[in-house]
């Protein structure tokens, strides 16, 4: 029975982190590309758009997750119809993770040597070609590294989401470990989280190293 409960918690955590990180990936990469290319001197230079987007990202990055989660309750209810459970947690997790990941991916994209962009222009690449064939492949190892960090941060935040009834390992540790002083459960959950984070970090590092041909 304990085993079932822990397994369920693990699955809930994986579901919350998996879904929100996937959305953060799909939304964050274009956001990062936009942040880089719309900057002054970029290939899609649009300084006003760049400033607005930058301010938007900073706004969400500066709100602590616990507060963001509570503040987003009406929005969450509108999107998923409930403010309780795994799917209700996915909404604030995604909204917190996307700008976070976009900023990290932006750094990797900015590190791509301008000479490569120039070479691509000189060979007759259109601007979208430059994004697709130059910026993204060259920044990919860094983006993978940034996504690993985002995953770990999401596991961290998902434990907080447990506190508003989202389920997952954080919820179990809080209810059984903290409120009922069951240190055995607490330690088991900690061990599981450590293993999960280590696994993600290891996998992410391996992938990034494999992709890095420099």
């Amino acid at each position: 029975m304990w085993f079932d409960r822990l397994l369920q918690g693990l699955l809930d955590t994986l579901l919350m982190v998996g879904v929100s990180s996937l959305i953060a990936l799909l939304a964050g990469v274009p956001m990062a590309v936009l942040l880089v290319t719309s900057d002054k001197g970029g290939i899609f230079a649009a300084p006003t758009l760049n400033r607005v987007l930058g301010a938007f990202v900073n706004l969400f990055r500066s709100i602590p997750f616990l507060i963001l989660m509570v503040a987003l309750i009406p929005f969450t209810r509108m999107v998923v119809g409930t403010t309780y459970g795994v799917w209700a947690a996915v909404v604030p997790l995604t909204i917190a993770a996307t700008p976070f990941f976009a900023r990290i991916a932006e750094v990797s994209l900015r590190e791509v040597d301008h000479g490569l962009v120039e070479a691509a222009q000189a060979m007759g690449c259109r601007r979208w070609h430059i994004v697709w064939h130059v910026l993204l492949p060259e920044a990919l190892p860094g983006i993978v590294g940034g996504f690993t960090i985002t995953l770990v941060t999401l596991i961290n935040s998902s434990a907080m989401a447990g506190a508003i009834g989202a389920g997952g390992l954080g919820d179990i540790a809080y209810r059984y470990g903290y409120q009922r002083f069951d240190s055995q459960i607490m330690l088991t959950v900690i061990a599981m989280l450590v293993a999960l984070v280590a696994l993600i970090q290891l996998g992410g590092d391996r992938l990034a190293r494999g992709l890095n041909k420099r």
Partner: peptide
């Protein structure tokens, strides 16, 4: 411009090759 650039090759001091390719 794209057509023009396809008819003009360019090489660089630091080669500017794509490292991931």
């Amino acid at each position: 411009l794209v057509n023009l650039r396809r008819s003009i090759g360019m090489i660089f001091q630091h080669f500017n090759l794509m490292s991931a390719k």
